[in-house]
Structure formats: C-alpha cells, structure tokens
Amino acid sequence: MKYQLLHLDDVPLTPCPCGTTRRAFVDDPDQTASLHVVTTSGEARTHYHKRLTEIYYILEGEGQMELDGQTFTVRPGTAVLIKPLCRHRLIGDMKFLNVPVPAFDPDDEWFD
C-alpha cells in the first residue's frame, strides 16, 4: 500500500525518555519515517541515536533543548534537526512533534 492514515488519538501512549508518546507509522514495512506526538514534564533523559535523524517541532510549552551539552531556549514554532550521535534532551513541560527518519527503532536509543 502506498499510504497509511490513522488518528493519533487511537494510538496508545508509550513511555519514552522524554515523557510519553504516541508513535505513528512505526510498523510500516518500508520504515521510511514515523511521526510521534510527545509530551514532556520536567527533565527528559539525555539520549542519542546511531542511525536515526530526528526533527522536533515544539507545539506547546516553553523550555530548554540540550544538544551536545549546549542549551537553547525553545517555544512553540521552534524546529530542531537532530542528526545521529547528537546527545539531546528537553527540559520543561512541552508537547512536540518528533519525526524520526528512518522510522523509529527502539534498538537505536542509546544512553551514556
């Protein structure tokens, strides 16, 4: 099939290093990309990926984004491109879209 359509409200919440997430399209056989709606509270756990590139887009809330030890202020409308091996985390209460490319793989989530 050349398309998929779903309602993210129907996707179960899953714990993640950032807080909780609803992950769409992770079961696509081509593993092109996935889409996650993530809610953070407080400090996320610093992590990185060896293969995945991620795009974060802040929808709600304000806080800090830590990228390889540098801290940046983020707010609604902020977009962040996170390439493989970049250690990252969010600090604060936020809701954001995360687009992993290729699709999210739980075996490619690393912690120091």
Rank of each mutant, 00 (worst) to 15 (best):
T53W: 12
E43R: 15
E43L: 06
E62F: 03
T20L: 11
M65G: 04
K2D: 04
R22Y: 01
D9I: 02
M65V: 14
T71E: 06
T21S: 14
L35T: 01
R75C: 13
P12W: 06
R22V: 03
E66I: 14
T14E: 15
P29I: 07
L8W: 02
T14K: 13
E60K: 03
P12R: 01
C18G: 09
A24H: 00
A33L: 14
E54W: 03
K50R: 15
F25Y: 13
L5M: 13
P100S: 12
E109M: 07
L6W: 02
F104M: 08
D30S: 12
C16N: 13
T14W: 08
L5D: 07
N98E: 15
K95R: 15
I55M: 10
F25D: 00
V38P: 00
P100R: 07
F72Q: 10
F111H: 14
M1Q: 11
K83N: 13
T53F: 11
D10G: 05
L90Y: 02
Q64D: 08
L13M: 12
V74S: 09
V101A: 15
A103P: 03
G69E: 05
A33P: 00
V101D: 05
T46G: 10
F96A: 10
R23E: 06
M65Q: 05
I58K: 00
G61Q: 02
F111C: 11
D105S: 10
C18M: 08
G77W: 02
D27A: 13
D93V: 01
F111K: 07
I58L: 09
P84M: 12
V74M: 06
I55P: 03
L35C: 13
Q70W: 06
P100I: 06
F25N: 03
L6G: 14
K2T: 01
T53C: 08
L97T: 02
P102A: 11
H49Y: 07
D68W: 06
Y56V: 02
L59N: 00
P15A: 13
L35I: 14
V37C: 09
P17I: 01
P12N: 06
T20H: 10
R89N: 13
P12A: 12
L90F: 15
V37H: 11
F72D: 04
S34V: 00
H47K: 12
T14Q: 14
M1K: 08
A44E: 08
P76T: 03
T39M: 09
P84K: 10
V26P: 01
D9C: 05
Q70V: 10
P102I: 07
Y56T: 02
R22T: 00
M94G: 08
V26L: 07
D27F: 07
Y56D: 03
E60Y: 00
P17H: 09
F104L: 14
T20Q: 14
Q4Y: 05
A103R: 01
R75D: 03
M1I: 02
A103D: 03
T73N: 11
P12L: 07
R51A: 13
D108R: 04
D93A: 12
L52I: 10
T21M: 14
A79W: 09
L13E: 12
R87L: 06
I82Y: 07
V37I: 15
E109H: 04
L5H: 10
V99L: 14
M94D: 01
V99E: 05
P84R: 04
W110R: 14
M1H: 10
H49A: 10
K83P: 01
L35W: 04
V26G: 06
G42E: 02
E109D: 15
D108V: 06
